[in-house]
């Protein structure tokens, strides 16, 4: 994803999808897009890798749940056993509330961290922001992004996918 990239601007989602399909057929790889919303079609079309956010969440949730269970077990049976109405010291059904809540919280937090790390966010300063036109990506603009050095020359691109405009984004 490093290096100079070429952004092809399109009017709408359909033109973007068509262009992505055409360039994919042409053998262009390492493509990305910038769109105002999550376009599920692009996930397959650009062969975007699946992230490991969910496995991270699963592991974090299970680990935190186990951890808080062990803490409850230890404090209730070893640390300070208190006989409360003759109930068993290891009252595991009552311990499950904290296990579940803590597990979910840990999964959510680990997922957020994994999401930011995977996306290398926060990146407040990025070459993408330099051209003024790219700010349309969060409004109504649709951009296909490809590595500048592997891209077909501009005439070919013009003929193949007819973008509204082409923008080069520095490394």
């Amino acid at each position: 994803m490093s290096g100079t990239r070429l952004l092809l601007a399109f009017d709408g989602p359909d033109a973007l999808l068509a262009a992505a399909r055409a360039l994919r057929a042409e053998g262009v790889t390492d493509m990305d897009a910038h769109t105002p919303w999550h376009m599920e079609e692009l996930d397959d079309l650009l062969a975007l890798p699946r992230s490991n956010v969910r496995p991270v969440m699963l592991v974090a949730g299970l680990a935190a749940g186990l951890g808080i269970y062990l803490l409850q077990w230890w404090t209730s049976t070893q640390g300070y056993p208190i006989n409360s109405g003759g109930r068993p010291l290891n009252s595991w059904p009552a311990f499950m509330f904290a296990v579940f809540e803590t597990g979910v919280l840990a999964a959510a937090f680990a997922g957020l961290v994994a999401f930011l790390v995977t996306c290398r966010l926060p990146t407040l300063n990025h070459p993408f922001f330099v051209p003024a036109a790219t700010e349309a990506a969060s409004d109504h603009g649709f951009f296909l992004s490809l590595p500048a050095q592997d891209a077909p020359d501009r005439l070919t691109l013009e003929r193949m996918v007819a973008p509204v405009r082409m923008i080069e984004v520095g490394p």
């Binding site: 990305d32 897009a33 910038h34 975007l48 990146t123 407040l124 300063n125 922001f129």
Partner: peptide, 11 residues
């Protein structure tokens, strides 16, 4: 946080 509406990020 520098969100760029990138398709990779969206995924």
């Amino acid at each position: 946080m520098g969100w760029r509406n990138s398709a990779r990020h969206w995924r």
